[in-house]
């Protein structure tokens, strides 16, 4: 499924547009990076409240094309610049982690 499903939904606010053709499949929600590292699968959308730069490192290593920050979290400019460099799409939403996962599931991710 194309990342359009997120960019066209008003409940997700696109923070950057660095991966317009990204293909996403599946959801992984977690705030511990070792757990993400060990269990997330290629193509997953990562839902996390962690907004530091290491999340991008993990996403890049696992080929995760998109990160959704719940609770209106927006990462700093350094993180956004790094995401642009790595081609990882970032989104923010006012929903909680659980609500975000449910919505993504309803959208067919």
């Amino acid at each position: 499924m194309n990342i359009d499903v997120l960019t066209t939904d008003s409940r997700f606010k696109a923070i950057n547009d660095s991966a317009p053709d990204a293909v996403i499949s599946g959801i992984f929600a977690c705030d511990m990076l070792s757990h993400v590292m060990g269990h997330a699968a290629e193509g997953n959308v990562l839902v996390t409240v962690l907004s530091n730069i290491n999340v991008l490192g993990v996403a890049s290593l696992l080929d995760l094309p998109a990160i959704v920050y719940p609770h209106k979290i927006v990462p700093n400019e350094t993180v956004i610049a790094k995401a642009n460099e790595l081609g990882i799409a970032l989104f923010s939403t006012s929903l909680t982690t659980a609500e975000t996962v449910i919505l993504l599931h309803e959208l067919g991710v």
């Binding site: 705030d31 511990m32 990076l33 070792s34 757990h35 590292m37 060990g38 996390t48 962690l50 530091n52 290491n54 999340v55």
Partner: peptide, 12 residues
């Protein structure tokens, strides 16, 4: 605070 320290490093 940076998302590490789950105690899963060596087991992983």
């Amino acid at each position: 605070e940076n998302g590490f320290g789950a105690g899963m490093g060596l087991p992983n």
